[in-house]
Design a protein around this nucleic acid. Sequence first.
DNA 1: CCTTGGCACTCACCGCGGGCGAGTGCCAAC
DNA 2: GTTGGCACTCGCCCGCGGTGAGTGCCAAGG
Lengths: 338, 338
Amino acid sequence: MLSERRLQVLRAIVQDYVGTEEPVGSKALTERHNLGVSPATVRNDMAALEDEGFIAQPHTSAGRIPTDKGYRLFVDKLAGVKPMTGPERRAIQNFLDGAVDLDDVVARTVRLLAQLTRQVAVVQYPSLTRSTVRHVELLSLAPARLMLVLITDTGRVEQRMVDCPAPFGETSLADLRARLNSRVAGRRFTDVPRLVEDLPEAFDVEDRGTVSTVLSTLLETLVEENEERLMIGGTANLTRFGHDFPLTIRPVLEALEEQVVLLKLLGEAGDSGMTVRIGHENAYEGLNSTSVVSVGYGSGGEAVAKLGVVGPTRMDYPGTMGAVRAVARYVGQILAES
Amino acid sequence: MLSERRLQVLRAIVQDYVGTEEPVGSKALTERHNLGVSPATVRNDMAALEDEGFIAQPHTSAGRIPTDKGYRLFVDKLAGVKPMTGPERRAIQNFLDGAVDLDDVVARTVRLLAQLTRQVAVVQYPSLTRSTVRHVELLSLAPARLMLVLITDTGRVEQRMVDCPAPFGETSLADLRARLNSRVAGRRFTDVPRLVEDLPEAFDVEDRGTVSTVLSTLLETLVEENEERLMIGGTANLTRFGHDFPLTIRPVLEALEEQVVLLKLLGEAGDSGMTVRIGHENAYEGLNSTSVVSVGYGSGGEAVAKLGVVGPTRMDYPGTMGAVRAVARYVGQILAES
DNA sequence: CCTTGGCACTCACCGCGGGCGAGTGCCAAC
DNA sequence: GTTGGCACTCGCCCGCGGTGAGTGCCAAGG
């Protein structure tokens, strides 16, 4: 176990390195933080910290920089979450309050997060699988062609074309529409399959094929994973990444374009509370020099999706975590209101 | 007027510079292209081209690189559009054929363009203002709350909530739905205002307020400009931009995040045929070192939106133009089929 | 008048070597 | 356990000359 002071030293190293982006030495440390001990003592502590793998030196006889493990300790034990200031809070709220629809909420959230953290923001659309059905609508486009429109409680709208095996009359359509809604409106997506299971039996034989087709399309829509869309923003902040650009930035940009990767990344993060993945803790190789701070958000107490930021491992963790948490909270409020 | 050979020299310079990314000198030119003249002659020609502002040298006694004006001449007079090869064509078609809905078509198009050109791709969603109405649906969510769903011929779906001034019965709703569709289905957006103008008069006095509200919401949706969304992709290709990264790449990333800027950019491009905007021809400052190649695309003969790529002024214009044109053509086909 | 070979000149690039200084590890003293 | 001293390491900066690609100019030849 590390002594209290050594933890202080680690904290100081992380803070300085995050501020200056340069390896920090023993002398500079004692000057900028009043640790109450001499550089020599700090040197001993640093040697110990290095032995334990919390810090490293890029070259012999240069200062130390934190390792992923060092950041991990810092985040877990040494850093709090820096709360937003009052003005910041108000700014967040004002900015989000102007949103007109779900797309706009997500878009604004992305911008806001990117601006607050000066990093790349990622916001997942409220997931279908955890929300409830507000309404299901069926439109007849042609005798044997329907459009299925699904409206969720988060304001999201999904539509699908349905090619029917047989013509489907207007009265049957109205009937199906009514029965369907009476069963699923207000219910959670996960309950829908069970609720509509026996629906075809209520119809004439010649309509059952169509009803089944409609139902299976509906169920597909509900589970369809690629509908877990997300929006990203603030990629311009990647230019503040470091000095050795092209090599660092390229894989990150590539990862950001692969929504699949990002979704998996967010999915791996814990379901409750804030998750911080540091450097190599990220499964995806291209993000080995980045940290991902993410948290779930939702309209009620329950998280329906996640949002977060991607930035260099050398980031201001307390500030970033504070911003992410605050934004998630306000977005949740906005969603609950609408 | 420039002699034929001088044009050849300019073409050779552009081609070599695009290939090597390095200033090209007189000797290298004569070696790599058989111009039939000696380096000395080429030097004279280069001096003339420089006087005219088509090329410039970064430092005294280095090779020449084309100026924006030089690229302009190259594109206008010297370069053709390089057609896609057979295999490329088939690959494009295969890739796009797999799309399941409009979002998917756009997403695939972006990926495809980015991959083919190895640059940043921008695809505008088919614009509402030029397409036609396929169907308008009205759903009653609550006694005084409706949802308006607009389906376009390009497969796009827009929805709006409508708060009614007074409760609106199911029969009135069905009536409105029927009348509305019989008037606007299959019509162009621009014609809709005229077609629904007198619709409220057909209803009872107590329903007219609601009908008017619905209509104005519909009209708003039709003209709403911020619905001109677009999708971008291939930003990772920015890392191949040049050597002096951060400075070049940052403003471009910023521009790409500002959809407004991009939309204006595409909007400024000519309505018919392919448009190439080179370097400072782009109004937006951040894109002064990039060229934008764009073209309209659409389901019929008419363009309903634009797509294109953003890349360094030093790009392979014939190849890029070929790819952009080919993709636009195939996307048009896909849209026409669905 | 255009083309060509020759020639002197410029200047970016590269590799080398020395001085500088921040930072370290070790040690003896407190 | 802490501190000051001290020798050592090594990355960084800077100035240096050599090299070579490329240029502009000029005089000779078609």
